[in-house]
Design a protein around this nucleic acid. Structure first.
Length: 101
DNA sequence: AGACTGACGATCC
DNA sequence: GGGATCGCCAGTC
């Protein structure tokens, strides 16, 4: 397995858990919140293992363009269930749903 | 230690 | 926003 720094994992999951329903945050945004704006990829890696650390709304995290996880099929439907709309297939309408603190 | 990879970002077009 | 390209950092081989 990935054996990520648990300290980093908890910081990320803590932020993800604060994302309100119907909103989405980008990996970079989360990365910046934990003080690692260049480590967006780490956020994604952590989310891929989030289940191992607990249950979090990792489906509310998309990339900067509003695109859903490249390898994740059901994320789209999960977001729609919360009221998130899509501009196009797999593309969230960031303009309306981007999570701003 | 070195090279490759990735649930990404920013810039350019 | 969308495709192409380069850059970042940590993890994996």
């Amino acid at each position: 397995m990935a054996t990520l720094n648990e300290n980093l994992v908890y910081e990320v999951l803590s932020v993800v858990d604060e994302i309100p329903e119907g909103k989405v945050a980008s990996y970079g945004q989360i990365a910046k919140l934990i003080g690692r704006d260049k480590n967006a990829r780490l956020v994604g890696r952590i989310l891929s293992q989030a289940e191992y650390y607990g249950t979090y709304p990792c489906h509310r995290v998309v990339n900067y363009a509003g695109r859903t996880a490249s390898h994740w099929a059901e994320q789209e439907s999960l977001l729609e269930s919360e009221g998130v709309t899509f501009k196009k297939r797999n593309y969230v309408d960031m303009r309306k749903h981007r999570w701003c603190e």
